[in-house]
Design a protein around this nucleic acid. Structure first.
Length: 298
DNA sequence: ATTAATGTTCAGAA
DNA sequence: TTTCTGAACATTAA
């Protein structure tokens, strides 16, 4: 399920195809699935953006933003099973929306229609159809993506900001990491991985974290998310997540605790990975590495 | 065949 | 006000 590293991988995958391109059309793919949450309608979108240029492809938290030259933007939320693709979907029946671009001048010179159409479109694919695609004006984009609704991006956090965040609330730290209004981009998988690397127990209350713990969470967030981006995200057992070229991510092989209940902790070689439920979500941690109180002495 | 589990966000309850 | 619970969605494993 796409979290920050997976969405960042999607953005990097579609950027070379989409950025700077003039939109020729937007159309709903002819699949028989339940309709996606799209606003306004795809037909209206197509009319409004024909001839507009995508000036920037970027990520905000777990959302993909296609910014247009008139100040509007497409904001795409992949949610559980959504993908942004440049080619070759996992299956054709769950393709949802196609953005087709005017050919580049260089491609137009070459005659073949097949060659000319390659790289002239991007797609949103979503098996479960829980994702959303919106075309918003500049004010609506600010309202949806600004810091009123979403906390700072997880990759832009500093130790000081983590400290402020944690002192302002008193909740289990794992649950706080999942609250997108506090810090945006972390989901269930990376929350467990971050806290394991930081050696912080997931049930620790945010108001009672030591300064050293806050520093370790800050450092671990950056390290884990950047490492996961380098591996192009995590493709779990259900195989849903793919990069923009429909290839597996590689970070699932580097998970230390997520979905590894019962295994010996790869960090300490001593504890066994436990699974607990917090806020109706699975949490994985090592009881030996992650103690509620700092180990004293040595 | 029925049920539980899955992850995210939001509405509404405590 | 803050924190927590449940609903919604589609698909699959048990």
């Amino acid at each position: 399920m796409p979290e920050l590293p997976e969405v960042e991988t999607m953005v990097r995958g579609i950027r070379p195809v989409a950025e700077g391109r003039v939109i020729e059309t937007v159309r709903a793919c002819p699949c028989a699935c339940r309709p996606l949450t799209v606003s306004p309608s795809v037909a209206l979108m197509a009319r409004q953006v024909r001839g507009r240029t995508i000036v920037e492809v970027r990520r905000r938290a777990k959302r993909v933003v296609l910014r247009l030259d008139d100040g509007r933007a497409f904001v795409i939320e992949p949610r559980m099973t959504g993908l942004m693709l440049v080619a070759d979907p996992p299956d054709p029946e769950h393709l949802r929306i196609e953005w087709r671009f005017e050919p580049l001048p260089s491609a137009r010179r070459r005659g073949s229609s097949d060659a000319a159409s390659a790289g002239n479109a991007i797609w949103f694919w979503d098996r479960r159809g829980l994702g959303t695609v919106r075309l918003l004006d500049a004010n609506e984009v600010q309202e949806l993506l600004g810091e009123g609704r979403l906390g700072p991006d997880a990759l832009e956090m500093t130790v000081a900001r983590w400290g402020e965040l944690f002192s302002g609330v008193d909740r289990p730290v794992k649950v706080a990491l999942l609250d997108q209004r506090l810090v945006a981009g972390i989901g269930n998988l990376y929350a467990s991985e971050i806290l394991h690397r930081a050696r912080v127990h997931p049930e620790s209350r945010t108001g009672r974290l030591s300064g050293a713990m806050v520093e370790r969470i800050a450092e671990s967030t950056r390290v884990i998310l950047e490492e996961a981006i380098r591996y192009e995200g995590s493709t779990l057992g259900d195989g849903t997540y793919r990069n923009a070229l429909n290839q597996d991510g590689g970070y699932q092989n580097a998970h230390r605790v997520y979905d590894r209940a019962g295994e010996v902790c790869p960090t300490c070689g001593d504890g066994v990975i436990e699974r607990i439920v917090q806020a109706q979500r699975s949490t994985f941690f090592c009881g030996a590495c992650q103690r509620k109180r700092e180990r004293s002495g040595g």
